[in-house]
Design a protein around this nucleic acid. Structure first.
Lengths: 236, 236
DNA sequence: ATTAATATAAATGTGCACATTTGGCACGCC
DNA sequence: GGCGTGCCAAATGTGCACATTTATATTAAT
């Protein structure tokens, strides 16, 4: 017999978790918004304990911040936090590029250039969402080339953090101009000039950091239900 | 009125968490040991729900692994996992040393040399526990010099993971010989030779990796209560 | 009129009891 | 004798009810 969608599924936890997480990552929930347990339980049509578990997991992952007896809220990162994330990314990528010296094969080079082609296309079409996503994936491509799960996981963490931040600190200029810098890094790598690649990478991140500006908070306040991707609830 | 030690303290969660965590970190619990909820609740004298929360947190931090409906156990890292952790540390430290170029002040240099003095002393006294701890703190000193919370947190994570692993994969030779390599790195840094420092660091980690050997699992099986640091329980 | 204190209501935290799943064991069958 | 099936016990997972804490609103006093 088929398991009912809303009952004892082990998938339900994951579904709720992903729904809340993507809502946070895509900046759909304004920074500082309090996520109470009871309304969330009603929105998703599940018990409060399940919401509780998901929220605790997100807090443990630093995706939400908890104040004892006062619930959880989406963190409002300071400008220093944002700089720290980008600096960490810069330091890590320097190490990655250094480790990549010598083990750069034609296959990886091909994939990098293909990816940059996609970035250029998205930039030409003024597709800002794709540009941001592809820009992150470019750096992931470099990190995954090492085949080290620890490094990849850390970088993925940094990228999701920074993707939250661009929704708060929106740069006046779009991030499209970064495509040329990506290409320059790959070019330096192709010519086995690792030091130059590292310098270009550092400069690249400094450019991103310098573009960070404080965005005015919007006063719109949509209801909770519309924030999350529609999740089927069992019919009564 | 004073809060009772075993009741509604917010400290209790943290106390149990730290007790279990340090027991894992110090290798007091053999890899593969299953940590059931009910016995743990009896050992610590707290309710099962509290143990539950702590265990879930440790699972989220990858300190324990959970199998659905079958409880949690301390993970048994493979040799590949260990190598990945050390490689990640090597890559990260290359980036750290690169970023440290130019911003190396006399104060940091002084602290590094003092620390190496402690390491040498511990090595002379054959104090293996202190040697391992100090060796980790040396690399933390380098990372903290950047003042970046993200990097420091990641390195701390890597270090705790590797400290678990030395209890499983015990090197035949002790890690005392690494002190000279630490000193060489600092010396290269002091003379502003960053490339040499990075090379020495990479070589250092390769030495550590090459010393990893598979340790025979011990057959001793102590009871749960003696594994954790004594935690006061309220008198009836 | 403003402030402070109290009471009320709502939201979080906790423990308990029950449901569900899993692993072992015994019995029976091939 | 080996293997498959079914029952039983133990451990995990879940929902519910209650305790505790916090914020708000109302009232009274200065």
């Amino acid at each position: 017999m088929m398991p009912r969608p809303g009952k004892g599924d082990p998938e339900t936890d994951e579904a709720v978790y992903k729904a809340v997480l993507t809502a946070i990552l895509e900046g759909r929930i304004e920074a500082g918004t309090k996520l109470a347990e009871t309304p969330l339980a009603e929105v998703f049509g599940v018990s409060r304990e399940r919401i509780r578990k998901v929220l605790h997991r997100l807090v443990a992952e630093r995706r939400l911040e908890a104040i004892p007896n006062r619930g959880v809220r989406v963190p409002e990162p300071s400008l220093e936090d944002v700089r720290a994330v980008y600096q960490a990314h810069r330091v890590l990528e320097a190490g990655i590029l250094h480790a990549l010296a010598g083990r750069l094969d034609a296959d990886l080079l091909q994939r990098l250039e293909t990816h940059i082609g996609w970035e250029q296309r998205a930039a030409m079409e003024r597709d800002r969402a794709s540009s941001v996503r592809l820009s992150g994936e470019f750096h992931l491509l470099l990190a995954d080339a090492l085949g080290n799960a620890e490094i990849s996981a850390f970088l993925r963490n940094l990228l999701t953090r920074s993707s939250i931040m661009v929704s708060v600190y929106e740069s006046a200029a779009d991030s499209i101009c970064g495509v040329h810098e990506h290409a320059a890094i790959v070019e330096a790598l192709a010519s086995n000039n690792v030091d130059k690649a590292i310098s270009l990478s550092a400069e690249h991140f400094r450019h991103i950091e310098s573009r960070l500006r404080l965005k005015k908070p919007e006063v719109e306040k949509p209801d909770l239900a519309s924030l999350f991707t529609p999740l089927r609830v069992p019919e009564p």
